[in-house]
Design a binder for these strands. Structure first.
Length: 305
DNA sequence: CCAGGTCAAGGGAGT
DNA sequence: ACTCCCTTGACCTGG
């Protein structure tokens, strides 16, 4: 099992090394593409530093932030004036990832709703998802779930089956690369999608399921944890190690006043089933790579390379 | 420099 | 009807 983390490196962020530079709408309107380009260039340079830091620390799985290109649903990346420079950096990051067997992925935000009954929402979602896979393609990363773009179904509207049918229809409108990279994740709300729901979509489209342990605890559905994990893992292609998400409940371990779904700063239980099944893990803890270090100290873990 | 308010989008839950 | 939460904390303003 390879243990990774998401988006932000707390250690490097102290030295202002981050790929999360963004802007609010007002600034986007005022400053437009030139400023997007400037931020994206800095973000790309810093992403390279983060990925290199990860390699030095033997971290092979990393979720990149969608903030890397601010407002990217509003323009083409190739229209940025610094695109040639940015493209070179992305290619260098991809080369580094390939040479070091690093898995880079994305998790676009909750506004990406492929099953929305609203045409504009679906169109915007398609554009944004395709932008994500375009970045991965530019990096030269294998077009497969080795480097995934992960989303939730996005809405239930009180009728999951109809919503899932819409999702499946719209799935085929995505770019070829996005179709080959997309994965779906189980939800943390009882009205939303548990693993057994996602299996329906997965069977129709071959889209694999990312099993989120914390979301399962919030919304288990009808399957036991092992059944849910196992059936999610089985949706992945045989030649790709499945990815899962893991975090501890903030409510149980750190602050009883918050909601169930809140993520804790650190991890408080060993990740289960790692001896029985093969999968990688993206940690979704607030303290990012620091929680990984703490976890490895507290829970003995045999990492595969 | 820092604290506090604010911030893109959709949908669901809580009040 | 309104507010908060979630991908992700970061941006922006005023002191």
């Amino acid at each position: 099992m390879n243990l990774g983390y998401a988006c932000l490196n707390m250690t490097l962020a102290k030295d202002k090394i981050t790929s999360n530079r963004g802007m609010i709408k007002r600034t986007f309107i005022a400053k437009g593409l030139p400023y997007c380009s400037e931020l994206a260039l800095q973000n790309a340079r810093d992403l390279f530093k983060i990925v290199q830091w990860n390699t030095r620390n033997n971290i092979k799985v990393f979720r990149m932030t969608s903030n890397m290109f601010p407002w990217m649903s509003e323009y083409e990346l190739t229209d940025l004036q610094d695109w040639p420079k940015i493209e070179n950096i992305l290619k260098a990051i991809g080369k580094h990832a390939n040479e070091n067997d690093v898995r880079l992925s994305f998790h676009p935000g909750p506004f990406n709703i492929l099953c929305s009954p609203k045409k504009e929402v679906v169109e915007k979602t398609i554009k944004e998802l395709d932008q994500h896979s375009f970045i991965l393609d530019t990096m030269g990363l294998e077009v497969s779930r080795k480097h995934k773009v992960n989303i939730h179904i996005g809405g239930a509207y009180g009728d999951k089956e109809t919503a899932m049918k819409r999702w499946i229809q719209n799935f085929y409108k995505l770019s070829d690369s996005t179709q080959k990279r997309l994965t779906i994740e189980n939800d943390d709300k009882v009205s939303m999608y548990a693993v057994e729901d996602l299996l329906y979509v997965s069977k129709k489209t071959n889209v694999p399921i990312v099993f989120d342990f914390h979301h399962y605890d919030c919304h288990p559905g009808i399957l036991t944890k092992e059944q849910a994990l196992k059936s999610a893992l089985e949706t992945w292609p045989k030649d790709i190690v499945p990815i899962t998400h893991y975090s501890s409940s903030r409510k149980i371990y750190e602050d009883s006043t918050v909601k169930n779904v809140a993520h804790a700063d650190y991890l408080y239980e060993p990740i289960p089933f790692t001896d029985k099944y093969v999968f990688d893990v993206v940690l979704e803890t607030k303290m990012k790579e620091l929680s990984r270090i703490k976890y490895l100290k507290e829970f003995t873990l045999h990492e595969t390379t």
